[in-house]
Design a protein around this nucleic acid. Structure first.
Length: 104
DNA sequence: GGAATGACGATAA
DNA sequence: ATTATCGCCATTC
């Protein structure tokens, strides 16, 4: 596995947050962006995951409608079934599985 | 330093 | 349910 290019500070912030999403829960790309409280948006988070996501539980980051990560649907679905994420067919049940970090 | 890129999101049809 | 379009904005070219 070739090492990824140098992670930007923004990328590190994204990865830190994604790493603490609990088992069986998820965050939407836009949720991650909002929780960071520093610029950026859903697309920026997606770009970071595409480049540096290999080291974090990337399958716990989903689309706002519960859709799984583009290009890794099969893999993500398998992992969610294994860790008990609330699903509705091949989509995550956002109402039940959505997680936001504690404000502490 | 301007243009292109893209694990997205909301809305419209 | 699905496709099409537009807005968003850090990063890359």
């Amino acid at each position: 596995m070739p090492a990824a290019g140098l992670p930007t500070p923004y990328a590190e912030a994204v990865l830190d947050l994604v790493a603490r999403i609990p088992r069986g829960r998820v965050m939407a790309y836009g949720d991650v962006a909002a929780a960071l409280q520093q610029g950026g948006g859903p697309r920026q988070v997606g770009t970071v995951m595409a480049r540096f996501g290999s080291g974090v539980p990337w399958h716990r980051v989903v689309k706002a409608d519960g859709g799984l990560a583009a290009g890794h649907e099969a893999e993500a679905l398998r992992r969610h079934r294994r860790e008990g994420t609330p699903l509705r067919g091949s989509r995550v049940d956002m109402r039940a599985a959505r997680w936001m970090p504690d404000p502490s």
